[in-house]
């Protein structure tokens, strides 16, 4: 009977060491943070999407669900930026649209688009880690390779389990309070009161949960010794090296190509808005 269960195989990005995924995307993230033009973040976001779908085998549907909200943020930047941007930054450029109460310059649109795309590229890069990494693998890699003390790594693991439980409890408390008519008047004082009244039982329950979890962990010898053994070892394999090197290379090629084509704007830590 035991023979029927096999360890589920992890393929593509999920099979990599979580730390190598972080290492791979870091230079690209730094680059995105420094860019001031539209094309650079666009190119990096494209690279991230290609890797996610090609190597990670993430379906376009799942990607759309994960990145959809960020795409809305880009749109938001595009619409709002021209209205709040500092006049002298865009004054010399052609007028795109004159609304009467506001004049929208082309440069303002470009600035808005750049800001939005940088965020989009940033989030797309984090998805290479987020969408393909098992929380356990990350904790193991932190403890085994990054030498994070296991008490910290695994306590964080346990805390991670609380989030959905507390979120559920919060929704129940909110429903209970609504039923009693708390906050129905909608005045500011009522709303503040409601926030406080929600926090009390939620906090009480979180403390109780934490205490119980701590007891359950101690009861299973957590922290008994300074180190622990590991049933599953995380390793750096040839695949990890290939992935990191490949991603760095592609990032570098993109930067060079952008520069050659004259699409790369000046790099800066802070953009003046």
């Amino acid at each position: 009977m035991n023979a029927t269960v096999t360890v589920p195989e992890k393929s593509g990005l999920a099979g990599l060491n979580p730390l190598s995924k972080i290492a791979a995307v870091l230079p690209a993230m730094l680059f995105v943070a420094l860019t001031t033009d539209v094309w650079s973040p666009l190119a990096i976001a494209g690279l991230a999407l290609v890797v996610l779908m090609g190597v990670g085998r993430i379906s376009p549907m799942r990607l759309a669900r994960a990145l959809g909200p960020v795409a809305l943020v880009v749109l938001g930047f595009l619409l709002l930026y021209p209205l709040v941007v500092r006049r002298e930054l865009v004054a010399g450029t052609p007028v795109f649209l004159d609304l009467g109460w506001a004049v929208i310059h082309e440069a303002a649109l470009e600035l808005g688009l750049t800001a939005g795309l940088r965020i989009f590229a940033f989030v797309a890069l984090t998805m290479i880690f987020n969408l393909t990494t098992d929380a356990h693998d990350f904790a193991r890699a932190l403890v085994q390779q990054a030498r994070v003390p296991y008490r910290v790594g695994y306590a964080a693991m346990a805390a991670l389990r609380f989030a959905p439980l507390l979120r559920h409890e919060l929704s129940v408390i909110r429903a209970a309070h609504r039923l009693r008519g708390l906050g129905e008047a909608g005045s500011l004082r009522d709303r503040l009161d409601m926030l406080w009244r929600t926090a009390v039982p939620l906090l009480a329950s979180a403390i109780r949960r934490a205490e119980r979890a701590a007891l359950a962990m101690d009861g299973r010898a957590f922290g008994a010794y300074p180190t622990r053994t590991h049933l599953r070892r995380m390793t750096f394999t040839g695949r990890d090296v290939a992935f990191v090197a490949g991603f760095w290379l592609l990032t570098a090629l993109l930067v060079i190509a952008l520069a050659q084509l004259g699409l790369l704007g000046p790099l800066a830590f802070v953009q003046r808005v």
Binding site: R209, A213, R220, A224, T229, L231
Partner: peptide
């Protein structure tokens, strides 16, 4: 409240690894 890990095997291994 008494689970630490997210899957059965890791949960089972938790105490034994600590030991």
């Amino acid at each position: 409240a008494q689970f630490v890990m997210l899957d059965v095997e890791s949960e089972m291994a938790f105490a034994l690894e600590n030991l």
